[in-house]
């Protein structure tokens, strides 16, 4: 189904594999990937374990054990997790509404296009949009204050906070979820639902025993993706908060620019920590997926 070349006779394929010439076709890509993706990353990873003189050390990693850095990691993970989970849940609800909810068909196209736009509308301009809306002098803030006498600031809401950042990140997280999960929802056959109800299952039982297990790999993969997406978001955070918020990407940004931590190699350790965390998120995804996907071809 994938390609007719996979159907080549095994003998021919074995012969081809022995020909190193074929690797040449892949060489430009491999050179690019090694030079500008793998080597830089490896350099960071190795740097995290090296002294300025070049010998092995764990001192850099130990250097992460300060209150400021630990707090930064914690708040970063919290924001990423919250925006990923909420993004998944809300995006799923909206996608389910357009695919299964019996809404008019003409809604679907524009909504998906809009999702494409919104999921790419991240970074600096997104921060401006939220500042103009619920920032200190934003549209909603001012409206609530002047028209309804509600002062968001007095209620404890601040855009430069856990919830403020999460709310902003959701603007690209939700549409990304919609874009990824809509095809998966389309893949749910009507017959499965009907067969389940013929066998006496309620709608809830169908979702619990059939639909969700089928969607599980996609849901999980998107969750991991959304987590990494939020965890590495630098531009939105900086444009929104300047450097006043203590989250890992901002800290690393400041460290690269001006060595604010006073130890050049601590930057490596900080970046290494980011790789480890997004790596763990994706590792969990791959592990769970392998366990749940035995029924897939």
């Amino acid at each position: 189904m994938q390609s007719s070349t996979t159907a080549a006779p095994p003998v021919a394929r074995a012969a081809r594999r022995r020909l190193p010439l074929h690797w040449l076709g892949l060489a430009p890509f491999l050179i690019f990937a090694v030079l500008f993706l793998i080597l830089p990353t490896m350099h960071i990873v190795l740097g995290a374990f090296r002294t300025p003189e070049g010998s092995f050390t764990l001192e850099n990693l130990r250097g992460l054990n300060t209150d400021q850095i630990k707090a930064a990691y914690l708040i970063s993970i919290k924001i990423s997790l919250a925006s990923a989970l909420l993004g998944c849940a809300i995006g799923f609800a909206v996608a389910a509404a357009i695919v299964l909810g019996g809404l008019p068909k003409f809604i679907r196209g524009p909504l998906l296009t809009f999702s494409g736009v919104a999921s790419n509308f991240a970074g600096v301009p997104l921060a401006f949009a939220f500042l103009a809306t619920i920032g200190p002098v934003g549209l909603i803030t001012v409206y609530l204050k002047t028209q309804m006498g509600i002062d968001l600031r007095l209620l404890g809401f601040n855009l430069l906070s856990f919830w403020g950042l999460t709310l902003t990140y959701l603007f690209f997280q939700i549409p990304l979820m919609i874009l990824i999960i809509t095809p998966a929802l389309d893949g749910l056959k009507k017959e499965w639902r009907e067969a389940a109800s013929m066998l006496g299952a309620s709608g809830l039982q169908y979702w619990r025993m059939v639909a969700l297990p089928i969607l599980f790999p996609s849901l999980l993969g998107t969750l991991a993706l959304l987590f990494a997406n939020a965890f590495g978001a630098v531009a939105t955070a900086i444009a929104l908060t300047g450097s006043s918020m203590n989250i890992v990407p901002i800290l690393l940004f400041a460290q690269i620019r001006g060595d604010v931590l006073g130890n050049p190699h601590l930057g490596y350790a900080l970046a290494f920590g980011m790789i480890v965390i997004t790596g763990i998120a994706n590792g969990i995804y791959i592990w769970l997926r392998a366990r749940s996907e035995r029924w897939l071809k």
């Binding site: 017959e191 499965w192 009907e194 389940a196 066998l199 006496g200 309620s202």
Partner: peptide
């Protein structure tokens, strides 16, 4: 449908793939 105690076989294989 789930109260009628009827069995049904569909045209497309409607087995639950999971």
């Amino acid at each position: 449908p789930n109260q009628r105690n009827i069995g049904m076989v569909f045209q497309a294989y409607a087995l639950f793939p999971n």
